[in-house]
Design a protein around this nucleic acid. Structure first.
Length: 588
RNA sequence: UGGGGUAUGGUGUAACGGUAGCACGAGUGACUCUGACUCACUUAGUCUAGGUUCAAAUCCUAGUACCCCAGCCA
């Protein structure tokens, strides 16, 4: 039997968040029984509505739910809450399945129940609705949407409906007519008979079914009434045997309704009951959704960005969508680590987007092969380099991963370095290249700047330097005491002019200029960063010409880059996922 | 105005009547063939006011701030 977290808590065990604690207690009491492995049962789900693309906020929920299933040796379902055909599309369904599979590491570590559909349960839901009507717990109401709103009441004012006391027989007849398609959109609803004067408005006789003559992506035209979220959701959970139905904080008020529907179905049920056996009653638990600085996560807004062409699509690397992050170069592991890192509570919070970026840096630092790339080239001519000589030097693929080995990189007398790595009049503590100063070219040689060439306007167009043959490989010669004879503080990346490949590099900044977009003006668009994308032509390490879309590298000293899906052999495109930390830039 | 929630360093999160801790950030330093990584040190907090108690972040009372709810959305 797999080890159970409830068996013994080791000393100094990492903190367990409130949902884990609930599950610990449930398991200790065997509240949900055991699964077929004999392990206390834990079954979670992620229930998106297929009306948009998944974003980093959804990732928190996906990681929480799938992570719990993994941790407790339970199961995890992906379930589409497709109860509103007016808003839902197959395009979103396909994208969501792909994103969830990618993010959950293709379901490793937990039993993946599969892909489920609320629409598969429509028939069962309807039969339960009939049951509630018969039990006097639901009725057909002929009020229009406007009238219901008008009669909704207010704080301290009771709602009303003239149809509340309609006989069950009559409601039943009308309900079947509604299903058959006898009534137009909006003409009637099925409502739960709960409490028209409840201070919790959710309980003021909520609508269970509305009439929608609309084609559904799964059920086609076989239905023209569709269940509302509150009515449908608990039944979906119940039918799938979900134990812990985890949702976000704004559903707190809905929890009494979630429970009411299941309790009402169960009323009078049991052994020997004509209604049948009792149905499973999962526990709804709410947690705080993710808020990220410099990020907008509303589906409506993201859709607008796409439709108005402010980004190139749902997978634009600047988008907070799962596929946007993925295209940018984010790994599933980094996103999972981030989601674990930020914790699970009932307090609303605002997470610094820098933490997401840090999670990526941590992940890629260990795994990404290094390469050199010059974004803004400045020519360097080595005056004492033998004409025509090409020196093949050893380049360490990843210093963090000795197993990655080395590869060869060509060095010649004409090179390019980063323009910002040279200063004619250096500021204090500038230990890059400047007149008279010696620096190291990474894995190559020490060079010393001997002068510059300028154009008519006085701009530096070329740097002259000499190299020290004794520093081949980038090490200073060692003295008789075994210590290096001299130290250089600066190490620069470089590319041989004759060997450089050309490529396109896309540099991104945050999509928004303000930590909380729209906070000042009320319009998030006002804070859109017009300079969030910079596309430049760069000189690329010749070894990267065979790189394929999705491959990720660290360009030394510049950041982590991912080969874009638009990239082609001979027309390389790299996205910068995130920069390296740069304490020098901060000083300036 | 009714109901439901939440308040701990800059940010996030622990402490479940008994030493306010951890992570991230920030600062300083060490190390370094990436001004990266790594390591060390420093920084800074219990919303307010009362009360109970030997002892309160925790319990009580009264405030304050913020979030959610009057869709035939989810």
């Amino acid at each position: 039997m797999p080890d159970s977290p409830t068996e013994h808590t080791p000393p100094n065990a990492p903190h367990r968040h409130f949902i884990e604690q609930i599950i610990d207690a449930d398991n200790a009491a065997l509240k949900w029984g055991v699964n077929d492995e004999g392990v206390p049962k834990v079954h979670t789900r992620f229930p998106p509505e297929p009306n948009g693309y998944l974003h980093i906020g959804h990732a928190k929920s996906i990681c929480l739910n799938s992570g719990l299933a993994r941790q407790f040796h339970g199961a995890f379902n992906l379930r589409f809450d497709d109860t509103n055909p007016a808003k839902e599309e197959q395009e979103y369904v396909d994208a969501i399945i792909e994103d969830v599979r990618w993010l959950t590491d293709d379901h490793a570590g937990f039993r993946f129940g599969g892909v489920f559909w609320a629409s598969d349960y429509f028939e069962t839901m309807f039969s339960y609705a009939v049951e509630l009507v018969k039990k006097g717990k639901a009725y057909v109401c002929d009020l229009s949407a406007e009238e219901v709103a008008k009669r909704r009441g207010s704080i301290g004012v009771t709602a009303t409906s003239p149809f509340r006391d309609r006989p069950a027989e009559e409601s039943l007849k009308l309900l079947h007519e509604m299903r058959r398609g006898d009534h137009p959109n909006g003409s009637r609803t099925l409502r739960a008979r709960i409490d028209l004067s409840s201070p919790n408005f959710v309980l003021r006789d909520p609508v269970m079914y509305r009439i929608l003559h609309e084609s559904h992506h799964n059920t086609g035209t076989s239905w023209c009434i569709y269940p509302m979220y509150d009515w449908a959701h608990g039944i979906e959970d119940s039918l799938e045997g979900i134990t812990h139905s985890i949702c976000t904080l704004e559903f707190r008020n809905n929890r009494p309704l979630y429970d009411w529907f299941i309790d009402s179905i169960n009323e009078g049920r049991g052994p020997g009951s004509p209604w049948g056996p009792r149905i499973h009653h999962p526990q709804q638990i709410e947690f705080a959704r993710l808020n990220l600085t410099y990020t907008v996560m509303s589906k409506r807004f993201l859709l607008a960005l796409v439709k108005e062409g402010r980004v190139t699509g749902w997978d634009d690397p600047r988008m907070p969508t799962i596929r946007g992050l993925r295209r940018r170069g984010y790994t599933a592991g980094a996103i999972r680590t981030f989601c674990e890192d930020i914790g699970v509570t009932t307090q609303e919070s605002m997470i610094d987007v820098g933490r997401l970026e840090n999670a990526l840096r941590d992940d890629l630092n260990k795994s990404a092969p290094r390469a050199m790339c010059v974004l803004r080239p400045l020519k360097v001519v080595i005056e004492n380099w033998p004409a025509g000589k090409v020196d093949m030097l050893d380049f360490v693929v990843n210093p963090e991963d000795p197993g990655a080995g080395t590869r060869k990189v060509p060095f010649t007398g004409t090179l390019y370095i980063e323009r910002e790595d040279f200063a004619e009049n250096p500021p204090k503590k500038f230990f890059r290249l400047c007149p008279g100063q010696e620096v190291r070219l990474r894995w190559a040689y020490f060079i010393t700047c001997t002068g510059v060439v300028k154009d008519a306007a006085g701009h530096v167009t070329e740097v002259r330097a000499t190299y020290d043959p004794a520093t081949r490989g980038g090490d200073a010669p060692h003295g008789p005491d075994g210590k290096p004879t001299r130290k250089v503080k600066g190490t620069l990346h470089w590319i041989s002019a004759d060997h450089a490949a050309n490529g396109t590099v896309r540099l991104f900044e945050r999509l928004f200029r303000e930590a909380e977009p729209g906070k000042k003006t009320g319009n998030q668009l006002d804070d859109l960063n017009p300079g969030s994308l910079e596309t430049i032509s760069a000189l690329i390490d010749p070894a990267l010409t065979t790189a394929r879309p999705g491959d990720t590298f660290q360009f030394e000293r510049l950041g982590y880059f991912c080969v874009d899906s638009d990239s082609r052999p001979g027309a390389l495109i790299f996205n910068r996922a995130v920069t390296l930390k740069d304490t020098w830039a901060k000083q300036e």
